[in-house]
Nucleic acid binder design. Structure first.
Lengths: 145, 145
DNA sequence: ATTATTCCTATCGATTTAATAGGAATTACA
DNA sequence: TGTAATTCCTATTAAATCGATAGGAATAAT
C-alpha cells in the first residue's frame, strides 16, 4: 500500500511542476489546493528538499521549487525518497538490499524469483514516468509522439 | 512491502505443492523445513483453508493439502487472500475498490494514472504465474515451451 | 519591528504486524 | 476405550509504523 506520505508528496510535486511563473510554491497554498493537512505536508516537503528534489526559500514570500525540470525527475527517484524500496521484499531490492533471516539460500527461495519479476515490472513503469507526465501538463513534445 | 504472513504463506504453499505422495502436509513439518514460527504458520494456513485454496484433515495424521492442481492456482488468487489488494491505492483496486477522501475527481488525479499502470504491470506478473511455477517443480510441459 | 514563511524536534493516538498462549475439537490407532 | 497427535479457534501482547499535531526557532521581506 502506498502511504499517505507518498501520495501527498506526489500530488504536491505535481502541483509545483504545474506552476507557470518562477515564484516558489508555498506549503499553505499547496495544502489547501490538494486537500493535504498542512503540518503533515510541511514535513513531507522537507524530506523532498533534504533529498535534493526540491529547493526552498525561507521567510516571507518563501516556498518550494523544483531543482530540475519536471521531465528530468524520474518516479524511481521520487518513490525511493518518499516510499523507500520499490521491491516488495528487501532481498530483491536494488537500493535497500537486506538478506532474509529465514532463507538459507536466496536462489532456492520460491518467493525470490517472483518478487524479482514484480520489482522489474514496477521499475519499468517508474523509469518511464517523469514528474512532467505526472503533472499532466501538455508540452510540445507530446504531440510529436 | 510484502508482509511476513504473505511470504510465509507463499513458501508453505510451495512446500505443499512439491509434495510427491498424497498425504497431507503437517504444520510442524512445514514450519521446521521453511523456518516459520509454527503457531504463526498455523493461523496462515487456516486463512488459506477458509479461502478455499487449501483443504485440511484434522486429528492424527492430519494436515493440509491443495484443493486444486498447482498449475491451476494463480498468484492473483493467493496474493489477494494473503496480502489483500494488489493495487497500491484502493482507488485503483479491482477487488477492493475504495474512493479517496481527498481527490474530488479521480480522473484528474495525477497519482491515479500512474498507479493504474503499476497495478496492471503487477497483475500481469501474478496472472501469469501459478503455484506450479512457484514450487520450482519441473514438469513435462516446461520442456515443450 | 512586524509579518510570513521554512525549519526542526518532539510527541501522540491509532492501527497494523508478528507472534504467542491456551485450550477445544477431532481423528488414528493401540 | 483411552491416548497421542493434530487442526481449529479466540484472545492477547509487544513492537513497529503511520498519520497527524504542537510549539516554537530561524530566516527573510517589507
Amino acid at each position: 500500500m502506498l502511504s499517505k506520505k507518498t501520495k501527498y508528496g506526489l500530488k504536491a510535486l505535481a502541483y509545483i511542476a504545474r506552476r507557470e511563473d518562477d515564484t516558489p510554491s508555498q506549503v499553505g497554498e499547496i495544502a489547501k489546493s490538494e486537500r493535504i493537512p498542512q503540518k503533515f505536508l510541511e514535513s513531507i516537503l522537507l524530506t523532498l528538499r533534504k533529498a535534493g528534489i526540491l529547493g526552498s526559500k525561507k521567510g516571507k514570500h518563501g516556498g518550494y521549487y523544483l531543482r530540475k525540470a519536471p521531465s528530468e525527475i524520474l518516479m524511481t527517484e521520487v518513490m525511493r525518497v518518499l516510499e523507500g524500496p520499490i521491491a516488495m521484499v528487501p532481498c530483491v531490492s536494488l537500493n535497500f538490499y537486506e538478506k532474509c533471516d529465514d532463507c538459507p539460500d536466496e536462489n532456492l527461495c520460491s518467493v525470490h524469483k517472483l518478487m524479482i519479476q514484480v520489482r522489474d515490472s514496477t521499475l519499468n513503469v517508474f523509469r518511464n514516468t517523469t514528474l512532467e507526465d505526472l503533472s499532466g501538463k501538455v508540452t510540445g513534445s507530446d504531440f510529436i509522439k
